[in-house]
Design a protein around this nucleic acid. Structure first.
Lengths: 160, 160
DNA sequence: CTAAAACTTCAAGTAAACTTGAAGTCAAGA
DNA sequence: TCTTGACTTCAAGTTTACTTGAAGTTTTAG
């Protein structure tokens, strides 16, 4: 474990793990998936540029709102290759991301409102109920678990 | 394939699949996970009560906002056993669910605002930046993919 | 009554996002 | 110098939520 003396120019995988809260195995996995990159020491150990922290943090933030790693990779591909991204580069990325996030929020709000008005409605004509419209955009998300940030129902129940 | 003559009292697995938009295999899987239940014909085929449609729709809706099947099962366990749930039962469930959904929406909004103000800030003191606070509640969600409803970044880019 | 459609079980496969373990190499402090 | 701790690769395992396929049975329409 290296102690920060002045300003380190390169970080070991353990350094990055500590600063991002991720496991080293996750970082190697991300590299394998071309989400991050590294140089090697003569002894074949990874050394990361400082901006990898920002990059990893972005990845995690994106995951939290429901993006897959593939989707995140696609977004990160828009960042310039070869040179470390500037503030403007990140801003551009954020700008592109925001409407997507806004849509996501809107969809969640729609669903909440639907549920409030529909789940309790007791309607017997199932066909007219928004809950039963399975033909909408969110129909087939594919396999695998999907969850977001926040509490589980258990947490909520425990709280009352 | 049975044609609805008057009002059927029990539904085959194919009926339920058609009405919910799910695959029959998914319905068997849900039953295995105790999310739904069925009776059997003398020939060992499944027959569902009509309220299974509502139940399945609820499951899908909950999944869309990010609940795991386990979490959904926990919520459904609050419904009365033995008798078909009444309108009041569903209302109660919706009531319990709403604040959770609201929290979720709020968290998404917080994240959006953080990103708008933070990603583009170019701050060099990483420690003070919200993006870099990996110690928050959403830190460890475990393995597996997580995604929600909505467009992928590709969709958004294609649209402009 | 018979053929086809729909159903049954069970085992195995898939995808995403990692983790774990084995077996060995590198780096840093005493 | 030596001994840890940190690192390396690679293969295999884990979880969630299903799907697919094989091999056989039931139901239903004609």
């Amino acid at each position: 474990m290296q102690t920060t003396r002045w300003q380190k120019t390169s970080l070991s995988i353990g350094d990055v793990a500590r600063r991002t809260g991720l496991n080293t195995s996750a970082l190697r996995f991300y590299e394998e998936k071309a989400l991050i990159e590294s140089l090697r020491t003569p002894g074949n150990q990874r050394r990361y540029a400082r901006d990898v922290i920002r990059r990893v943090s972005f990845i995690r933030a994106a995951q939290r709102v429901g993006l897959t790693l593939e989707e995140v990779r696609a977004m990160l591909d828009d960042l310039p290759a070869g040179r470390p991204p500037t503030r403007a580069d990140w801003q551009e990325l954020a700008r592109r991301w925001k409407p997507w996030l806004d849509e996501r929020i809107a969809a969640l709000e729609r669903l909440r409102d639907q549920l409030s008005s529909c789940i309790g409605c007791g309607c017997l004509s199932l066909d007219s109920c928004a809950l039963y419209n399975h033909g909408d955009a969110a129909g087939s998300l594919g396999p695998g678990p999907r969850y977001l940030l926040g509490d589980s129902p258990e947490d909520l129940r425990a709280r009352n």
